[in-house]
């Protein structure tokens, strides 16, 4: 019983990120409205960011900002800095993708007057 509980406590937050990720993915592939798809894309990317950050977490660790002292750094007191760095990049990428996607959506709206995918497809077939 205890081992099961420990198993669940050790992993439940990864499962939550998977859930969040799948919400984003589902919105992205199944919604009809392009704005909703873009929002789904953002949810998806954010979930991955949270996932990475939780990889780097250590129980009892604090932010990786050291003190100017002479003695050696106790590594387990600070969380892993690498995922934070990687995710700074991923945040920037997701913002940029969001910007480009919005620009494209504006171009589509300018041309077709709608952002519903089926209406645009109907318009294109003519």
């Amino acid at each position: 019983m205890d081992s099961i509980l420990e198993f669940i406590v050790g992993r439940y937050n990864y499962w939550l990120y998977i859930l969040l990720m799948m919400i984003g993915l589902y919105a992205m592939i199944s919604k009809n409205n392009l704005t909703k798809k873009i929002v789904g894309m953002n949810i998806f990317q954010t979930a991955i960011i949270l996932f990475y950050i939780s990889i780097g977490f250590k129980k009892g660790g604090t932010i990786p900002i050291l003190e100017h002292t002479s003695h050696a750094v106790e590594v387990s007191h600070f969380v892993n800095p690498l995922p934070h760095v990687l995710m700074l990049t991923a945040i920037v990428v997701s913002v940029s993708t969001f910007g480009v996607a919005l620009a494209l959506a504006i171009m589509i709206y300018r041309e077709h007057g709608t952002l519903e995918e089926d209406e645009i497809l109907k318009c294109l077939e003519q």
Binding site: V9, I55, F57, K58, S76, N80, L82
Partner: peptide, 11 residues
Amino acid sequence: PQWGDPNSPAS
């Protein structure tokens, strides 16, 4: 590895 494990390979 367990969440928050300071001895995970990543850390």
